[in-house]
Each structure stands twice: as structure tokens, then as C-alpha cells.
Design a protein around this nucleic acid. Structure first.
Lengths: 171, 171
DNA sequence: GTCAATTTGACAATGTGTTGTCAAATTGAC
DNA sequence: GTCAATTTGACAACACATTGTCAAATTGAC
């Protein structure tokens, strides 16, 4: 009998092939998801990137500076900074002084920004319903679990502490 | 009893939440995978994008022009063109005249290019083995099947004919 | 054979992310 | 309180993908 810690070359090769396929499909799905998201909110003056920033603002219990938003989202400061600059230019977001830190202004949604975000959220709901129609939740959850496991292995012990505490759990 | 076509609001909402989580994790995993891939082959003079182009060349039975490679890879002509330009500048790839089409030169790997690709493939094998260690192949394959199903729904009837014939049908 | 439609590569602009560097502001060890 | 380390935003450069436009080459209907 085979021991648990010593899988056959056959199993190893099947596993490797399956993982390679999965990875390639993650790349491809990432591409079509971004394209779909952009198309979904384009006429609201949003893109996937800006939408994501609005989401981070909406989920936070209080207005946050750019660097804090970036940590929450797992992106770099600069990437978020650019999106915020654009959102500000379009009037969807505004900066307010931070009493605790003169440089780190707090980002807050304007009324038009909140309206756009609400509209995007409403569309995303029906879009997701249509996309997931007749897929068993268990299958989706199992796949998500695997993706998380892979990400955890790739990123090391705990690379995204911002994911944990209080922000992302609520969504 | 509940009919198959009319899921409860409860199931629908669970499904929606699961799908949203999955999508966010696809984005995150995409990011760490690209970073890992870049790190894996950086010292070979490769990046994820260049590596992918070399892979398409290696898999093709004969040298192909840039536009054909792009279709095979599901990317735009211009994106592949730039990678090919860079690979050519680094001597990993070379263009040869196409007897059937004066403009569409054929892209072929040079000996250094093949050496780099072989080295990258070897590393990828051990990397994938380590990453997939102790994950049951069935789980990986099931997750991959779901990603493919989602992609098929998002992209419409048949958006990537190059991938289709024998890969997508099997899931 | 002719000519419109398609394919191909070149070029430019844009979106989104990265890294690196810098100065100002804040924090913390002492 | 002082001063080094960290955090923050500004700015620049780059990697990778997109779209759009153009001219040359090829293909196909006629």
C-alpha cells in the first residue's frame, strides 16, 4: 500500500497538469472578468479599478487616507493614488483634512460618487445572479477555498493582514 | 417541494455571495501568480508575458506569424507584437521570411531562446509540484471546471476557438 | 483579371498595475 | 526633547494589456 506522504509519479503528474490548467484558466478568467466589469459600469463613469476603490471606501467604517485604502485592497499606494486622482477629477470623491495627520487626507465619496456606486452594486447583483444561475453554491465555495489555499501558499504566512481584521470580513 | 428552476432567495443569495468571493479571489490569485511567475524566471531574462509567448511558439507544430500567435494565446496582436519585439532584441527569438506571406514573418526561437524556455519549464515543474503538494487532483480539476464554465458564460458562445476543440468540451 | 474585404504589422494613445526616489509628516526609542 | 525610522503623498519610469488608425499584402467574390 502506498503511504500518504509518497504519492505515485502518476498522481503527481496528474496534479501538476491539473494545476497548470487551473492557473492558465485563472489568467483567462481574470481577463474576461475585468472586461465584463468595465462594460458593466462604463456608462456610470466607472471602470473596474475605480469601482474597486469606491468599494473599499464604502466598506470602511470611516474615511481613510489613500495609503490605508491601498493596504486594505492589497494594491500599491501609487495605483490607488492614481485612481483616487481620477475619481476626484470626476467629482466622485473628495478629500478632507485629516485631524490626525496633515499629509494623509481622508478620501470620502461625494453624493454623485455614492449614486454611481449604488447603481454599480445593483447591476452587479443581477449580473452575478445571471452568471451563477444553476451553479451549486457548494461547488463555488469549494473552488474559492482552493484559490485561497493556493494564494496562501504563494504569498507566504500572512501577506495581506488587511484582509483579516474588520474590513473584508463584512463583505 | 421546490422546483429546480425556482431556487429560494436564500440559495440565490448564498450563491451570489459565493460567486463574489470567488471573483475577488480570482483577481488576487491572478496578481500573486503573475508575481510568482516573474520571480521564477527573472534571472533567465524572461517575464511572465515573454514566457507565455515562448510557450505558444514551443507548442505550435511550425513557426507562426505574430497575429497567429496572438489568436492562439487569446491576446491582441499588438500585445504579442511588443513581447516579440523585446524577445527579438534579446536574441531569444528571430524572424524568418514567410514564403506564403511577405508581411507576416514567422517567429522562431533561437538556441538561447530554447535554452531559456527549457530552463523555465523545468523550474515550473518543481514549482507546481510544491504548490500543489497534497492537494487532491479531483479538487483542482473541479475548480478548473468551474472557472471554465464561468468564462464560457461570460465570453459568449465561442470566443477562443484556438482553445476550444478538445479542451473545453471535456469539462 | 479586378476590386472590395480581410489580414497583418506599425504606430500612437490610454488604462492599470509595478518599482524607485524624494521630501514632508509622524512615530518611537532613547 | 532629540533624532533615526517609518509612513505618506508626489513624481517619474517602466511592464503589460487594451483600443484605434493606417498602409501594405493577401484573399475571395465576381
Amino acid at each position: 500500500m502506498r503511504q500518504a506522504g509518497a504519492p505515485s509519479a502518476e498522481v503527481r503528474s496528474r496534479r501538476r497538469a491539473a494545476l497548470t490548467d487551473l492557473i492558465l484558466d485563472v489568467f483567462r478568467l481574470n481577463g474576461v472578468l475585468l472586461a465584463s466589469g468595465d462594460a458593466l459600469v462604463a456608462d456610470l463613469g466607472l471602470t473596474s479599478a475605480r469601482w474597486q476603490v469606491l468599494g473599499a471606501i464604502a466598506l470602511a467604517p470611516a474615511p481613510l487616507p489613500v495609503a490605508h485604502l491601498a493596504r486594505t485592497m492589497g494594491l500599491t499606494r501609487q495605483a490607488v493614488q492614481r485612481s483616487v486622482d481620477e475619481l476626484r477629477a470626476d467629482g466622485l470623491v473628495r478629500l478632507e483634512p485629516n485631524p490626525h495627520h496633515r499629509r494623509a487626507a481622508l478620501v470620502r465619496m461625494t453624493e454623485p460618487g455614492e449614486a454611481a456606486y449604488r447603481a454599480a452594486s445593483r447591476r452587479q447583483e443581477t449580473w452575478a445572479d445571471a452568471l451563477a444561475a444553476d451553479l451549486p453554491p457548494e461547488i463555488i465555495e469549494a473552488a474559492d477555498g482552493l484559490l485561497r489555499a493556493l494564494r496562501a501558499r504563494l504569498a507566504g504566512p500572512d501577506p495581506s493582514p488587511a484582509t483579516a481584521p474588520d474590513t473584508l470580513e463584512t463583505c
